[in-house]
Amino acid sequence: MFYPNSPQTSPQLTQIPYGQQYAMMQRQIQQPYHPFATTEPQARLYPYHYQGPIQQEQGGFITQQSTAASPQYVQMRVTPVDQSIMSGYPNQTANGSSSSSFNYNIHPQQQQQQQQQQQQLRHHAMPVGSVPLQDDRYRKQLIVNYLAPDVTSTDLHELFSRFGELDGARIIYDKQTNMSKGYGFVYFCHAEDAKEAVERMSGYEFHGKWLKVGYSTNPLNIVPSNSSPYVHAGSRGAAG
């Protein structure tokens, strides 16, 4: 039997160049792979992502010199942007860049009308829970959420009447099932009393439920100042 490094198959040491006398086997001759043993700084910083320098080929596509990437890492192929796409944008300079302001050559009167329309939209648009300043009635009506099913309009009136005089209180019921929808409205005579009720009743436990109280901004629920107070009856038909 002959071994790869046996004296019968191995040459004389004098015939082997210096430095390879003890590297006779194939696994010894093959050098191990060192990912950080390279002179390129990109490979030292990113050993798993770097795959060699990027070269520009004919046709405008950018390719990489090395083989496919590892399945664990996804390499994105980048193509140059066609400058003709950006030619339609206004205020574009000769080098292809555009300024931040756009001039669509709008007539001054049209621009003024658009600004007025935007101001009107901001004036009428009102986020949930906010209180408008032009109508004091919005500051007097509250919406009470997360009410228990057994709470009546009379219970709601008695709960909030300790903060001040009320114009009314009612629970909203479903017309088909005649069941409470879980929320109601309270109408105060003074805005200061309503503000105190919002601050003190939010998070209050009532009939096993934690109440959420806020201003009601729905104009359909506003009680006119010259109208008669609501009837605080315990029956659902009268309260709904």
Rank of each mutant, 00 (worst) to 15 (best):
P229G: 07
A169P: 01
H49L: 04
K140D: 01
Q8S: 11
H124S: 07
Q176E: 03
H123N: 04
T152L: 05
S153Q: 15
G168T: 01
I172A: 02
Q117R: 10
D174R: 03
F102H: 04
D167P: 01
T63A: 11
M25E: 15
Y46Q: 14
D155H: 14
E192Y: 13
P17E: 04
G60H: 13
Q120P: 09
V151H: 00
L159I: 09
R122C: 08
L142I: 08
N178H: 13
Q115W: 08
F2V: 15
G168Q: 01
D167A: 03
P219C: 00
M76I: 04
Y18R: 15
P41N: 07
H107T: 06
H124R: 13
L147R: 01
S202A: 09
F2Q: 12
S70Y: 04
P32A: 04
Y187S: 01
D82H: 12
Q134G: 06
Q72H: 11
E57C: 08
V186T: 02
N105D: 07
T93Y: 12
G19S: 11
K195F: 14
A194Y: 00
M86N: 12
P108I: 09
M25Y: 06
P17M: 13
Q15H: 12
S84Q: 06
R44P: 04
Q64E: 06
Q21H: 06
P224M: 05
Q117F: 10
Q75R: 15
Y3T: 12
P127W: 12
Y187C: 00
Y173D: 00
L211F: 05
T152S: 08
P219M: 01
M201D: 00
E40S: 12
G214M: 02
P53S: 11
P71M: 05
F36T: 14
Q134E: 07
A197V: 10
A148H: 12
Q65F: 06
Q134A: 08
V144M: 00
T38S: 12
M24N: 07
P32S: 09
S97F: 15
A125D: 05
G203M: 03
I29F: 04
T93W: 06
R170S: 01
Q75N: 13
V213T: 05
A148P: 04
G214P: 00
I143S: 01
Q26G: 15
Q110R: 13
N178R: 07
H157W: 15
S216C: 00
S97G: 09
G234M: 13
M126G: 10
H123V: 04
P90S: 07
G208W: 02
R236W: 03
D135Q: 03
S227I: 13
G182C: 15
M24E: 05
Y73F: 12
I29T: 12
E196I: 13
A68D: 06
V74R: 15
S6P: 10
D155K: 05
Q75E: 12
Q20L: 04
Q141M: 00
S100F: 06
P90Q: 13
P90F: 06
E205K: 10
G59T: 09
E158I: 15
V78H: 15
L147K: 01
P35Y: 03
S216I: 01
N218G: 01
A169G: 02
I16P: 13
K209M: 02
D167Y: 10
Q119R: 13
V231Q: 14
H232F: 13
V151A: 10
V223A: 04
S70M: 03
P149A: 04
G129R: 11
F160V: 01
V131F: 09
E196M: 15
C189R: 15
E57V: 07
P132C: 09
R77M: 00
G129P: 09
G60D: 05
G129I: 03
Q111G: 09
E165I: 13
V186E: 01
I143A: 01
T9L: 08
P53G: 12
P108H: 07
Q134W: 14
G60R: 13
Q26V: 03
I16R: 15
F160P: 01
F36W: 06
Q116M: 05
Q21P: 13
Y173F: 05
F36D: 14
F36A: 14
A169V: 04
Y183A: 02
Y18V: 07
Q51E: 09
R139W: 08
I143Q: 00
Q113P: 07
Q20T: 05
S100Y: 12
G214W: 07
F2D: 04
T79N: 12
D136F: 09
I62W: 04
S101N: 09
T14D: 07
A239K: 11
V74H: 14
A148G: 06
F61A: 13
N95D: 09
T63Q: 06
Y3S: 10
N145R: 00
Q119F: 11
D82M: 06
H107C: 14
T154D: 15
S180F: 00
P149D: 02
I54T: 11
T9C: 06
N5D: 12
S84N: 11
V144G: 01
A238M: 08
P11A: 05
Q117P: 08
G129F: 06
L220F: 02
Q118R: 13
S235W: 14
S87Y: 03
S225E: 06
G88D: 09
S153F: 15
K195G: 14
P32G: 06
D82T: 11
Q120M: 11
